[in-house]
Each structure stands twice: as C-alpha cells, then as structure tokens.
Design a protein around this nucleic acid. Sequence first.
DNA 1: TTGAAAGCGCTAACAA
DNA 2: TTGTTAGCGCTTTCAA
Lengths: 344, 344
Amino acid sequence: MKKITILDIAKELNITFSTVARALNDHPAISAATKQAVRETADRLGYRPNKVASSLRSGKTRIIGVLVPRLDVSFFSSVVHGIEGVMNENGYTILLYQSQEAIKQENKGIETFLRSRVDGIIASISLETETVGGYAEIRDRNIPLAFFDRVPAGLDVPSVTIDDYHGGFMATAHLIESGYRRIVHINQYRNINIFNERLRGYLDALKQYGLPVDEQLIIKGDFSLEFGRQCVRDLLARGIAFDAVFTLEDFTAMGVVQQLKAQGIRIPEEVGVVGFANEAFTSLVSPAISTVDQRTVEMGEEVARLFLKLLKKGDYYKHRPEKLVLEPKLLIRESSSRQMPGTK
Amino acid sequence: MKKITILDIAKELNITFSTVARALNDHPAISAATKQAVRETADRLGYRPNKVASSLRSGKTRIIGVLVPRLDVSFFSSVVHGIEGVMNENGYTILLYQSQEAIKQENKGIETFLRSRVDGIIASISLETETVGGYAEIRDRNIPLAFFDRVPAGLDVPSVTIDDYHGGFMATAHLIESGYRRIVHINQYRNINIFNERLRGYLDALKQYGLPVDEQLIIKGDFSLEFGRQCVRDLLARGIAFDAVFTLEDFTAMGVVQQLKAQGIRIPEEVGVVGFANEAFTSLVSPAISTVDQRTVEMGEEVARLFLKLLKKGDYYKHRPEKLVLEPKLLIRESSSRQMPGTK
DNA sequence: TTGAAAGCGCTAACAA
DNA sequence: TTGTTAGCGCTTTCAA
C-alpha cells in the first residue's frame, strides 16, 4: 500500500497540496465544495495525516510525557488511568516512561521526552530522587511540567498531591478517639516528603490530644508486608507495650494484621490498625483494614486538568505555580473499630 | 533558551552540518577528533537531537503504540509494566491508549497510532470488539501488530496468551480431585474467546473425570464481586445443590466467598472455591482463595520480545505468525484445600 | 574524511 | 478562494 500524502490527493483533484492541507484542517477560506471533494478523496485513498511531519513544522506534538516510578503499583497505574482519560478527551496522547524508582532511569526518561519534543511532562519522582536533578532542565527550556504525589523539594512547579499531613493526623486522631493510647507508627527510612508529612500528622495528633511521643513507637524501615510482620515481632520480643499501629501504607498494615493474628492478639479489641492508600485488598480481608484513601484516579484527572490550563498560558514559569492539595478520606473499617473503653 | 540544532554546532566548529550529523551518529567515516569536538560542543550548547525531525526523515519513530482496555485493572497495568520494561531496554518508547472497553474508542486509538506513525502496535481488544474491526487496516499497512491475552478472532497475527483452556481444566480437575462433585462455574455472557476457553476447560475436566454436565450449574453474567454474591444467593434460594464454585475471575470468587460466609457455609469443608487471575487480595483474604495465575508481567515481557523479533523481519505478514501460549499456574490455597472425604 | 544537496510531509506567510 | 513558496531538523546519497 503506497503511502498517501496531501500531494496525492491534490493530484487526484487537480488542485495544489496547500489547498488540500487547508481543506483537511477546515480552514475558513476554503469552499465547502472543495472541502467535501478533498475529504472524499482522502477517505477513498486511505489518507492518514502524518503527525510527525505536522509536529516538525508546527513545533507541537500534542504528546505529553508521563514519568512514573512503576506501573505495577496500583497507585501509579490508577493515576495514569486518570491522566490518560482526561488528556485523551483533550486530544493529547501519553508517552509513557517508568523510572523503576531509579534516578538514572528517571533522567533517561526526561532525556527521551526532551528529544521527543513532548508538549509537556507530568511526573512523580523516584524514591532515589533527592535533588531536583534532571527536572530543572525541563523548566529551563520552558516546557510545562507538573508533578503528582511525589514532588521534588526545591522546585517551584505546579503539582497535585493529597494532604498527607492531614491523612496522618486523621488516622492518628481516629485511633486516639477510639481509646488507643500507645500508637506505633511505622514509617520509612528515606527522606521523602510525603512520608515525612504523614509522620508529622501523627506527631501533631499526639500533641494535640496531649499524648507523649515515645521514640520507641516510631519505626523506620522499608515498606512491605514482611516488614510489618517483623515490626510486630520485634515490639513483642522487646516487650514494648502498644495498643495500635498506624502504618505509612497498606501492605505494611497487612503484615501487622497477619502477625498480630498469628500471635493470637485480637484486632481491634487489643490492638487497632490503620493503613494508608486504600489498596483493593484492605476492604476484602478480615478484619477489613481501616485506611486513608488517596483518591488516585481523581489525582490523575486533576493533574491532567491543571496541566491543560498550564498549556494554555504561554509562559508557564512566569505565574505562581498552582498547587492543588486534595483532601484524603479516612476509611474506618473493622481493624480500628472498637467501642471506647467504658462506653457501650 | 535558543533551540540548538546541528547547524549551530556546525557553525561553532566551522564544519558542515552533515559532518555534525554523522559525528553524532557515530558514523565510521568521521575522525575521532571531529567526533570528540562535536560531542563537546553539543554538550556545551545543550543540544538535544530532535526525534521528530529524524523520524520524519528516516520513517522510523522508535515508538510502539500500546492499546489496552483500561489501566486501572491490575492485569493490564502489570502487562504494560512488562512491555515498557523490555521495550525501554531496546530503545523504544510506549505511546499509551486506553479503549475503556469500547470499540469506538479503540478505533480512535488505532487511528491515533497510525497518524503518529508508530513503528508497531501491541494491543488487547476491548470486550465490545467482536470483529476484526480497525485492526485489519494495521495489517494492510504492513505495520507490525501483536496481541496479548484478548486476541481478535479471524486475524492471523502474533500473540501471547495463556492457555485459558488448561487453566480452566486444572482448576476444575483440582476441585474434582479434592472430592467436590457438583461444581458451579460462573462465566460471562459475552462471546469472548478467553472466557469460552476457560469454560471449555471446565467442561472437559468434568467429562474426563466422568462427571455429568449440569446446565443449572453453569451461570453466565457479568463479572463483579456483587455478581458472585448474587449467584450464591440464587443457587441457595433455588435449592440447587453444589459443593464447589469455579469463577472466571477473582472478584467474582471473592463475592462467592463473602456470601457463603454470610450464610454460614464453611469453606472449604462444605464448598470449595477457585478463582482466576491471582489478584493481590486472593492471597491476603481468609480463607485465602485458590486461583489461576496468569503470569502478567511475563506476558508483557514476552509480547515485547516477540515484537522485537517481528520488527527485525521486514515482511511481518509473510511469515506464519508466532503464537506463544504461556502455561498458567494453579495456586492451591485454603479455599479449596480440604481433605478428600474418607482420607486422612 | 568531509561537503553539497535533496527531501521526508506538513504549516503558514504572502501573493494573486 | 486558491496557489506559491519557504522551511521545520534531520538522514542519506553522491561527489570531492
């Protein structure tokens, strides 16, 4: 099948290719008759506009680079689902890149996007990324850039996040109000902003309710189901008293639940558990695990919308960047639902 | 920041832009000294090759279109994770499109890929797609095309699938060997090949073990947790005896488990349950649900590898298409683990 | 080893 | 309302 260009259509109709181009782009100065003829011929010949050529000429690709740590984590795939949905409706296509949580790979992604002349970039940084790194160059080239969830420190750009501080606060306050007093918090050893915020919410809730901060109850590691189990084993082995656990994400909470059950400790009567992320399994296991919903699909849709607004302005970096903070939702389930001691 | 092209580099060095182009592409006829000088100047000026221009000229974009139903389904996001990983290692980038399970949107995706001049397309068809539809045109244009999991009938193209028939067979045979005799199978009302295959496996297992096929035990609907619950309610209400349920996917199995528990029916003692897909929650709930693993990431990696082989050949449609069938893995968990009646 | 020149398929300014 | 023309930034053939 020969490749059909506007020139082929022009020849068929004995007009010039620029008339064809205008007809196809619905230019107002072209007669209805010509447009009609051009469209029919284009269809008949099986013409497909060449986006590569038009991008080269116009300087616009209508492609957005989306850079995420990894797509097999449901949080990220949900957000990308949201981004693609909204971008698609607005005529943009997504070029996808996974950093695999590695800064080197992340920079390769940025490089690829730059070479591909994407019209903009939406990203969530890798766990390894502590400095601004390759992102500074995107801004220097005046290419629209927005982040979701994991935002680099020291780069004043638009972003959509959830209020991790408030999420941590709500989870902790809920446990306190349910009568739990010695609340373990399992967090992460890296210096990641969103995780620090959850910790800060935890600390502030303790403070606000007049509970002491016990450093023994704050554990930092790497999150995983197994780490959750290990934390419980350690706490029990070391004889540290606790009556609740708030974890920075759900798999760790699941591990906590499993280990508590294995040791015959009743949830939520003896120990309450709250996770973070609202992974699908949290509502299906028993006891169902209380958690904090991060509104993933909305986050994707919002960052896409914010981005479309950005694209309309010319000088993306002249205005003060819009930073949208979504309110997380505390989902109270069985794992933390006990009657207040002394109440009915 | 001015846009730097090979012409700017050429001017700096008083050579022609074609020499610069060759140096950057590591052309053998260029002296080491020139290459060195060109690379340094390119770095100093902040040069980024323009992939749009080189694609237009060379006719190759090194972009692969990936078309999936929806990315918020973990099966698809895992496969895409696998595809992106392998393609990335081989210098390809992924252009992503979601059909949202709708044929109209699917055709829009194909159209977009064609216009974007992708070097190839990897797809999994929407539930609505019953004919070959827009995919025929891709083949007509001699653009490499491969499918995974959901393959259109009547199009002889490369694909990677799992052996759904065998998955259905193994699941059913396992239930029979565990002593279950009246095995319900919940399937789907649409005419989708992979689902039909699971049903066929179920039927053949019954046959092979000399069990009768009871039409009352074969239910067709739309899959969801709620549908699983409803099926159990209906069966019990109608007084249809059964002692096991094999569902076409895991959420339905979860619904079955929930409803059985709600009605006080013990799993696996009274009723055994096996799902399909190995969703994350199946290993975490209690009882843990037996299921069939579809090897999602591998599927993505394999379809990418198969695709890379395709890209190396010139005439993709001259050879007999390679169809890789992965062996599913039956994961036996608590929901179907009962002692054989009469054994110890 | 390097240079000259054509052209990929389109957009858009300028002319008619 | 349509035609003419230049050029986006590269790759690649032919020539020197």
